[in-house]
Design a protein around this nucleic acid. Structure first.
Lengths: 240, 240
DNA sequence: CGATTGCTTCGTCCTCCGCCGAAACGTCGG
DNA sequence: CCGACGTTTCGGCGGAGGACGAAGCAATCG
């Protein structure tokens, strides 16, 4: 109890399995109702309600009442960032007490990481953009090259809007399943929006998984170049 | 217990006050003995021993036996990074259940953040380097300008060594007390080493606090330029 | 060689908290 | 209005785990 109890409180809040599952579900970026989160966490409604009250009181999630539903979402990217960091630690350090569930392959392949893409596909995309000279990672810092800027402008991405805020355009976000970086930042977010809008990927109705559609397969392959292994072998395992 | 128990395990590990205090103490970057950590956490030796066993089994800390002492340290920058993230969340979200203790002003002023400097001084340093055109933060990505490279070379910093590894040279690390970024990465580390070697700052014998020595005051002020407010006025001021 | 110090293991106590069922509150639909 | 549904509050149960003292090893010192 000397100087830093607050960090313990926050960590303990995340440290309960039920609450961790809820937060993990919210990593998909969507707002979910208390009932959905209860199911996601594998607990009854009263239990979930208590957990959610504590999470929102601590400011980790925000709640919005809508009719008889209450929608919860993460209170910001910083929360998501810490959660991803914890996943990284868990992947690096933990024995895998988590028996690899049936849904895991789909998650490993493509998923949302709060507001951008993660998983095999995201890592490939990142490495493809690097290989094509559209991104550069000098000194470990990612930035968009001139070629990359014209590429995304041609795709219809409004780069100046993405650079308006305080949040960086490009950020290397360590993928906890692949152990290699993928693209975060506002550009990462824009790419996910882009891909969803063009039906290249379809977010799972619940959960973080992303399904890559056939046209998406073509489009993404064009983005990442032909040098990349065809994905077809890994698609369609463990439907959901 | 659905898909993500591992993150809960790690977070729960950090979520105990005694363990959190130990990890916080290790954020100073030094290796500490079990006894020191017990004192730091405010628990007896047996309790501390149990906690440290769990922390090292989970891979959050590394242990090295030396005579009858056992030295513990954080297992890597990723652990420190997650801890800093948690501190940020705690500062942003938490009601301040932590009454601002007497030691806090010193910590706010200058402290170590695992292996680089944090606190008021570190933020000033960062902003001074930016203002002088030695660092550039285009697109939210920090990098060293040509002027900056010559500056640090002249100071005797071996930049190529710093760029050798996988870890980035410059990283903007959010300062949880100042809520503004300071400099991390290998350059951040080198600056701390530099400042310690030249007796500009003196690490507290225990804890993360850094004391700025009178010559250090001169030197750092020269680094950050005269435009920066003298430190004397802001010492002991709280809040933001 | 015996005393001291640092750390761990063991056994025990005890508090905390996560879980649920039952019931209350509110919203929506007939 | 009344019933269905989503959510919260309440009360009680049970288990996990954090705390300590005493004792056991191991290394250092006189």
């Amino acid at each position: 109890m000397k100087e830093g109890p607050s960090i313990a409180t926050i960590a303990a809040l995340i440290g309960d399995p039920a609450r961790a599952n809820m937060l993990g579900a919210l990593m998909a970026g969507r707002a979910l109702t208390a009932g959905e989160l209860a199911r996601e966490a594998g607990v009854r409604a009263p239990t979930a309600s208590g957990h959610l009250a504590r999470l929102s009181e601590a400011g980790l999630v925000l709640v919005e009442a809508q009719g008889r539903h209450r929608y919860f979402r993460l209170s910001g990217p910083d929360v998501a960032h810490v959660l991803e960091g914890l996943m990284g630690l868990a992947a690096r350090t933990g024995r895998l007490r988590t028996r690899p569930g049936p849904r895991d392959p789909a998650l490993r392949q493509a998923r949302t990481c709060y507001d951008h893409m993660a998983g095999e596909w995201a890592v490939r995309l990142y490495e493809g953009l690097l290989a094509d000279g559209r991104l550069t990672a000098a000194e470990g810092q990612v930035s968009l090259t001139e070629a990359g800027r014209s590429f995304f402008r041609a795709e219809g991405v409004d780069l100046s809007a993405l650079e308006a805020g305080r949040r960086p355009l490009c950020r290397a976000c360590l993928d906890w399943s692949e152990r290699r970086p993928h693209l975060g930042g506002t550009l990462g977010r824009a790419i996910l929006d882009h891909a969803v809008a063009r039906r290249w990927v379809r977010p799972s109705t619940e959960g973080r998984a992303l399904t890559v559609t056939p046209p998406g397969l073509m489009a993404l392959r064009a983005w990442v170049g032909d040098a990349v292994t065809p994905l077809s072998e890994t698609i369609g395992r463990a439907g959901g």
